[in-house]
Design a protein around this nucleic acid. Structure first.
Lengths: 197, 197
DNA sequence: ATCAGAATTGACCGTTCGGTCAACTTCACT
DNA sequence: AGTGAAGTTGACCGAACGGTCAATTCTGAT
């Protein structure tokens, strides 16, 4: 079945691109690493850009899955946000073991590479970050109704700040090649949200 | 004098690379935009990597300059940190006007692109981020001595969190192509530092 | 005025890139 | 068993890449 080949291509390309970047990884590299010929790759994908879009979607699917079981789970909203951050850092750890180097946030890295320069991939990442903000925003609405955060807090702004902070955590961990850096930064989440409990 | 040509090459390469990325910008692009022949570029720089190192140093020089007049200035330490953040966002605004698109943090963007994949540029960016953290850390030491932040606060961790947060601010602003996003996130700086005043 | 070295030119090189293609094999379905 | 689509192969293409180089011009010190 070709679906398996396609999946292997997406997974391999995702690994390579997360370990370095979209531009640094050639389609030849992906094919070699995946054990697939170039013609096959272009049977499944129209272009390198199309492959990158599939990679991005795969990353985003994993991210939304992570959000569902944490932010969308049970318990108090701020605890659920904490749970997401912890789980996110765990994936950093896991990916570091798989890739041999600490990656950044797959969404954020693509966003930084494509923003303002790539006409289709850039907006796609921007939209994902926007959805991400919305998920946090809903949890913060809930927390505000419960009085768990300061009443003056603007959930929309705070949610955006939180996504940004997570991006910064990932970037610092990537630069230092140590997920522990992100873990130490996690204590800043609650203060950032002006939690009152 | 050749120094001017060299400077124009660094400035042009800096603009192009900040608007997209190192890998996306070819030396031919840089030469064309700078009005310089390729041979001249290789008279001043050993390689594209060498050029990128010069670009990075130029960015870092501007950043340290910004830090000196803000964090290293007069007044209370937390106010000086606020001043830096405000000035940093101003440069985002200014660069957006110059480049036509909102850039990320020049240091952070390079760090994300090179970390773990480029043997000389990666560590260089990491070192810069480390120095950046140290500057904040000293200001936070001062703030702690003055009782302006919670006594339990670990200045080293908080300083790293702050640099990360600034990176996240820049990334979000870049993705949304709106420095206003970063400006709205600035209100999170004080809470992040657990300021008590 | 001279001359050495810096700066500049633009053609050129080998490689790698993203992408194409016609031919071949495998698979699902009747 | 037969058939058409899906999947696979590997050679191939033009363009763009980073980088080189011999030749030429500019420049500042003597």
């Amino acid at each position: 079945m070709g679906a398996e080949t396609r999946g292997r291509l997406v997974a391999t390309a995702g690994d390579l691109m997360q370990a370095s970047s979209f531009a640094q990884v050639g389609v030849g590299d992906v094919c070699r690493a995946a054990g697939v010929n170039k013609g096959s790759l272009y049977h499944f994908f129209d272009s390198k850009e199309d492959l990158a879009a599939a990679v991005l979607d795969a990353h985003w699917a994993r991210m939304t899955g992570l959000m569902e079981v944490t932010v969308g789970g049970e318990g108090e909203p701020l605890d659920r946000i904490d749970a997401f951050v912890a789980a996110f850092i765990d994936t950093l750890d896991q990916r570091r073991r798989e890739l041999g180097t600490t990656p950044g946030c797959p969404i954020g890295s693509f966003a930084a590479e494509f923003a303002g320069s790539h006409p289709s991939l850039g907006p796609r990442t921007t939209h994902m970050l926007g959805q991400w903000v919305t998920v946090f925003e809903r949890a913060l609405d809930e927390a505000r109704a419960l009085g768990h955060v300061d009443a003056d807090l603007d959930p929309a702004v705070a949610a955006r700040s939180l996504v940004g902070y997570v991006q910064g955590m990932a970037l610092m961990a990537q630069a230092m090649d140590d997920p522990g850096v992100a873990r130490s930064m996690a204590v800043g989440v609650r203060p950032l949200l002006q939690a009152t409990t």
